[in-house]
């Protein structure tokens, strides 16, 4: 795709954002992504709330020298400002939110057809755009998730990653739980949380290498639970925050009171449906990587090669385990705790 046309589109989109800002004002919200901070510059309350309500926000000023990358956000319904026309053709939209020609390289983009919402990022200028046709019509739980695309691209360009994985642990040490949709990441991690383990994420988390250690951090202070998970973990019901969500949407449960600041990752794991919960079982990395590939690579739009490379690197540096989890989930926390203790001892 013609880079000049894409650069011109970004300029036009930023002009539209400036016009929306003149009409509605701008609400700035900062999110720390490890070595970089993202600043969401939202025009008007509806898009601000929908994009940032569930994010773990930055506390205080960024440390000196921390780059700050801006994401200009507005919607047409609230501001009355239309988005500049797209510089690509209607046949460019691909399954999985991607836009042909914008999956790698200088410009990255994703488009959520269900809600008419665009994420566009210029990696060279380090500027992002989030535009929605109608912010009030967006479903908050989904939109918070969709901002993660641009947050992931920003993080990746600064050496961090946003991975499709849960993270739980004990003290300051923990494990990543990987696997495809339905593998049991959320259920296992939430069961661990209810058993008192430290909790970072049930579905995706920020992963950053700090001093030779992989550190997992939370991006959202909510988790998502299916009706099946709620039936197995009824204690979660009191934590539901979206009781008025349309039918078919997963329950959002708050985990804000249980979030750990970060966990040093000691092992990679994946859940396995078992007759009863048992101690973690070490597996070779080839078997492990191939078993979690489908749930880890290609899940988020763009930069899939980099995600594959990261997965392979993690499997080189960290031991890989299967977590046999029984249907009643009892003892899931003990299984993870024992694994973390063992690997912490090895690391020491």
């Amino acid at each position: 795709m013609d880079e000049r046309a894409l650069a011109a589109f970004l300029d036009a989109a930023l002009e539209a954002h400036a016009e929306a800002s003149a009409r509605l004002g701008t609400i700035d919200t900062d999110v720390d992504l490890g070595p970089v901070r993202a600043r969401v510059r939202a025009c008007g309350r509806p898009i601000h709330d929908r994009l940032t309500d569930m994010l773990v926000l930055a506390r205080g000023a960024a440390p000196a020298g921390t780059p700050v990358v801006e994401i200009a956000a507005f919607d047409t319904a609230t501001s009355g400002v239309p988005m500049a026309p797209p510089p690509w053709t209607p046949d460019a939209y691909r399954p999985g939110l991607e836009i042909e020609g914008l999956r790698h390289g200088r410009f990255l983009a994703s488009y959520m057809l269900e809600f008419a919402a665009l994420t566009f990022y210029d990696r060279e200028r380090e500027l992002g755009i989030y535009w929605a046709l109608d912010a009030p019509a967006l479903v908050a739980c989904q939109e918070a998730a969709r901002l993660r695309n641009v947050l992931r691209w920003i993080a990746m360009d600064h050496g961090a990653e946003l991975v499709h994985a849960a993270a739980v642990g004990r003290g300051e040490d923990g494990v990543l739980i990987l696997g495809a949709k339905g593998a049991g990441k959320s259920t296992t991690s939430l069961a661990c949380m209810l058993e008192g383990l430290a909790f970072v994420a049930d579905d995706f988390c920020l992963l950053d290498e700090v001093g030779g250690t992989w550190l997992a951090r939370a991006l959202t202070h909510t988790a998502r639970a299916t009706e099946g998970t709620l039936a197995r973990l009824p204690a979660l019901r009191s934590r539901i925050t979206n009781r008025d969500a349309p039918a078919g949407h997963k329950a959002e449960v708050t985990v804000a009171d249980r979030l750990a600041d970060g966990l040093r990752i000691r092992a990679l794991t994946t859940p396995e449906h078992a007759a009863r919960t048992a101690p973690a079982r070490r597996v070779d990395r080839t078997t492990f990587v191939r078993s979690v590939l489908a749930g880890t690579v290609g899940v988020f739009p763009g930069m899939s090669q980099e995600t594959l490379r990261l997965l392979v690197r993690l499997s080189e540096e960290l031991p890989c385990y299967v977590l046999p989890i029984g249907p009643d989930l009892a003892g899931a926390g003990d299984t993870v705790s024992a694994l973390v203790d063992d690997e912490r001892a090895v690391a020491a």
């Binding site: 269900e114 809600f115 008419a116 495809a180 489908a294 690579v297």
Partner: peptide
């Protein structure tokens, strides 16, 4: 294994608004 994940939400027969953006 990845087919189900990647082939969700197939994009075809989209409708555009006056500015050329796909709309639900």
């Amino acid at each position: 294994d990845m087919q189900e994940l990647l082939l969700l939400d197939p994009v075809h027969d989209i409708e555009l608004d006056a500015n050329g953006w796909p709309i639900p």
